[in-house]
Design a protein around this nucleic acid. Structure first.
Length: 296
DNA sequence: TCCCAGGACTACT
DNA sequence: AGTAGTCCTGGG
């Protein structure tokens, strides 16, 4: 059985997808080469050429999961045309800069916890906490034989972990989460939300809801407000019309389309009015570009 | 040593 | 309905 696949891709750039603040559980092994987790699965992904992706999976039937994860069936050329037409020059520059960006379809529970942690936090720290939570409370994943030949020497001994089940995370004391996973005051929110999921609130079932109802339902979880709900809606439930307003998007949207007194709610409305059903995708290009401009 | 960045939530108006 | 103050921690 084959476990390593080469897939033809377009509008796909691994670094932009994984390092744009939507996916947190990965190790960068080399340029354009990552060990990537999602839920209880793991893969090795490498992009040597712009038009092809190499992916090593645990089992051949996992290939469909990862194709879906990377949203490979969607034509981003059309989306970029649409939001480019509806936005100003900066939006078109953002699409160009963030070429190959895609909106991933991620595990519900993992995404819920990731964005609870994201409150008042930065990417490096979110990533650290997410990997720690997995190592501490996740089930160990056996290293697939065929991964070893592909891993760089210094990673051959790495231990692989699934993201914790809600039932397992629900049993951990908040104090411990804070001390061992470095989640700070978000400890109680994580524990509480894990308990809610463990006690039977089905994250899968929420996918049946309309986008407004879904975002409302997500805000019932502890530590989930409008911004975090929009992130979970966008990156787990693939609601491409969800428009998360963080400080970067706030500044950018205020400067480009509104004034500096515009509230987050008004910014969300304007984003959705202007960019329509792909406002969330537009947000992601804009977010990634705004952070880059700030670095320069 | 202090100060800053970064959303949710509470307690106000 | 809108908003000041607080929560934690790594980094300047």
């Amino acid at each position: 059985m084959e476990h390593v696949f080469t897939i033809a891709v377009k509008d796909f750039y691994l670094e932009h997808i994984l390092e744009s603040g939507q996916v947190f559980r990965w190790h960068k092994l080399a340029q354009n080469f990552y060990l990537l987790y999602s839920g209880s699965k793991v893969s090795l992904v490498k992009q040597d050429q712009i038009a092809s992706l190499q992916i090593a999976v645990q089992n051949p039937e996992d290939l469909a999961y990862w194709k879906n994860f990377f949203d490979l069936q969607t034509d981003y050329e059309l989306i970029k045309k649409s939001i480019g037409r509806r936005g100003k020059k900066v939006m078109r520059e953002a699409c160009e800069y963030g070429f190959g960006l895609r909106i991933a379809r991620q595990d519900y529970f993992e995404t819920l916890i990731a964005f609870i942690i994201s409150a008042n936090n930065n990417m490096k720290r979110i990533q650290r906490s997410m990997l720690l939570l997995s190592e501490l409370y996740g089930k160990k994943i056996e290293m697939p034989e065929h991964f070893l030949a592909l891993l760089p020497d210094e990673y051959k001994g790495i231990e692989l972990y699934a993201f914790p089940e809600a039932t397992d995370l629900a049993q951990v004391e908040p104090k411990e989460l804070r001390a061992l996973a470095g989640v700070g005051y978000r400890d109680v929110n994580i524990a509480q939300s894990a308990k809610m999921v463990a006690s039977g609130i089905s994250l899968e079932a929420l996918d049946k809801l309309s986008s407004p109802k879904l975002l409302e339902a997500l805000q019932n979880f502890a530590g989930v407000g409008p911004k975090v709900a929009a992130c979970i809606g966008l990156f787990a439930y693939h609601r491409t019309n969800a428009f998360p307003v963080d400080v970067w998007i706030k500044r950018t949207m205020q400067r480009l389309y509104l004034n500096e007194s515009a509230s987050p709610k008004a910014i969300e409305r304007e984003g959705q009015r202007r960019f329509g059903r792909y406002s969330g995708t537009a947000q992601q290009y804009l977010f990634y570009y705004a952070k880059e401009l700030d670095k320069r």
